[in-house]
Design a protein around this nucleic acid. Structure first.
Length: 493
RNA sequence: GGCGCGUUCGUCUAGUGGCUUAGGACACCGCCCUCUCAAGGCGGGGAUCACGGGUUCGAAUCCCGUACGCGCUACCA
């Protein structure tokens, strides 16, 4: 055990998408593995045939890869401990279930769903502290069992929980925990369709796959004693357990679909950077004991430790995610941003932008200028487009409030004057534009602001944005003059 | 109902018995900067550390109880 290399697994059931809570669990497993030179394994827990979803595994793997959580063993990449789909390991579970039955640690149960239901109702009526299976089939004679078996009567295999035991284990995050076996049901291990339940499958697989640390959500804490019982029944060494606090909705219930987006894919599609999502989710339940909040994956790997994982659940706070997204966006190089922006423009639903891009009307150096002036003003890549569409298309409408405030009967005259001055410029720089405007303001004996605001509105249609001379420079002389002309025409109406 | 886990500003959290008049971040508010919007800088409000008892010279920190929240309680995972 001492020099064993750590092996951890992320074992989701394929529900169709990767839940952000699952992402956090996967991330902590991944970080733990990388930090300790161990292996990160992906295992698909697809033992519920009623919940089969087409394409779910592919989506899951895609989302995991997008997030940067590359697994060392699992579907597609293989490994020495496969298969990594539980649905392909049925014979293994059967073998171990048989072993348990032989040892008297498990038994066949032929009770019908109807009997079970009636039993539960009866127990409820009697106000028994907890509803449990009554071990009826444990006391079937050998002959009865054989007869039922040979007659093909539907059966399950149940764990034989001995009463009056105290089940103890240690959790890395929560410390020592005890359960009384009297509170633990004779859990079904093999369902009547021959598939195992989670409880059997995860124990068998974790043992066979040599998992050293079981790092999973807190919702599993209550069933851990069942797993412990299984390890003990098999005579296997128990792995270390670490039960992570839950991710919560704003109302502090378990994070769910009904109260917002829960799929990693949702966040990806909304334009969140994977770096930001990872950074954010890492901080939901873990910190390094200092004030650092901005992390890249490699830094997380260096710093992560299960000892510093919190016990209490954490609310998924979008505002902080947004902030981290803008932080990560700003740290990106121009080249990276250029590629991200180009991807985004192709998808742009605004006006002719996407088509113009395909017609190569936005050369790289043009986009780079936009990025340079907008970088400090955006939180999402798409905002390089939709908060400053005027860089891509001439404005077709002008912000109403700003029109009222900044355009008046004098404006056409001022704009004309500016147009004249700009016309005389030759390939003007930002400074040339500024000098020209300053000159006009002196000639007109007006404060610069009296010209800047109306002009900003004329060329951008908006009252907010980067420095106005930056806008002029990026648009270029001809475009600026065209837009001034348009504004003058509109003002004449 | 039973069992388990949890509880520090609205949110994420620091804090592991004296360094704490409980620190940081997000969000919010104000000021500065300024052609606007951001960014940045400065400042502000905001936590009787769930509550009640102990232990101790001293407790957010240790113990007990209570309350509240959450999770589990399936032939789901």
């Amino acid at each position: 055990m001492i020099n064993e290399i750590p092996r951890v697994r992320f074992a989701p059931s394929p529900t169709g998408y990767l839940h952000v809570g699952g992402l956090r669990t996967a991330l902590y497993n991944y970080l733990f593995a990388k930090r300790n030179n161990g292996k990160f394994i992906l295992r698909i827990e697809d033992t519920d045939r009623n919940r089969y979803v087409e394409g779910a595994v592919e989506n899951l793997i895609k989302a995991l890869k997008w997030s940067g959580l590359q697994f060392d063993e699992g579907p597609e990449v293989g490994g020495n401990f496969g298969p990594y789909f539980q649905s392909e390991r049925l014979d293994i579970y059967k073998k171990y279930a048989d072993e348990l039955i032989a040892k008297g640690k498990a038994y066949y149960c032929f009770c019908t769903p109807e009997r079970l239901k009636a039993l539960r109702e009866e127990q409820e009526k009697q106000k028994l502290p907890q509803a449990k299976y009554d071990k009826h089939c444990l006391y079937l004679s050998k002959d009865e069992i054989d007869k039922n078996l040979s007659n093909g009567i539907a059966k399950v295999v149940r764990l034989n929980v001995e009463p009056n035991q105290v089940i103890k284990f240690d959790d890395i995050i929560r410390g020592h925990i005890e359960f009384e076996s009297n509170n633990i049901d004779d859990q079904v291990l093999i369902k009547s369709d021959g598939y195992p339940t989670y409880h059997l499958a995860n124990v068998v697989d974790d043992h066979l796959m040599k998992i050293t640390h079981v790092i999973r959500g807190e919702e599993w804490l209550s069933s851990t004693p069942k797993h412990v019982l299984l390890y003990d029944a098999f005579g296997w060494e128990r792995p270390n357990f670490a039960h992570l606090p839950l991710l919560l909705n704003p109302d502090r219930s378990k994070l769910s679909k009904r109260q917002g987006d829960v799929a990693v894919e949702d966040y990806r599609d909304k334009g969140y950077l994977k770096e930001a999502l990872i950074n954010f989710v890492a901080l939901l339940g873990w910190n390094d004991g200092d004030d650092k909040e901005f992390y890249y994956m490699d830094e997380l790997i260096k710093r992560f430790s299960l000892d510093r994982v919190n016990k209490a659940g954490a609310v998924f706070d979008l505002q902080k995610l947004n902030w981290l997204n803008s932080e990560h966006l700003r740290k990106k190089s121009i080249e990276e941003l250029l590629n991200l922006l180009k991807d985004e423009i192709q998808k742009s639903p605004i006006g002719m932008i996407s088509q113009n891009f395909k017609d190569q009307k936005y050369p790289d150096d043009y986009l780079i200028k936009i990025i340079q002036v907008m970088k400090e003003r955006v939180s999402f890549v798409k905002e390089f487009i939709d908060t400053c569409t005027y860089f891509y298309e001439a404005p077709t409408e002008y912000e109403h409030k700003s029109v009222e405030k900044n355009w008046n009967s004098e404006t056409p005259k001022h704009l004309n004057k500016l147009k004249e001055k700009f016309s005389s410029l030759n390939n003007p720089t930002k400074e040339d534009f500024e000098l020209a405007l300053t000159t006009v303001s002196e000639e007109l004996n007006l404060g610069k602001g009296k010209l800047i605001h109306p002009l900003r509105l004329a060329v951008s249609g908006q009252s907010t944005g980067p420095g106005m001379f930056d806008i002029l420079f990026i648009l270029g002389k001809d475009e600026v003059i065209n837009r001034i002309d348009t504004a003058i025409k509109i003002l004449a109406q």
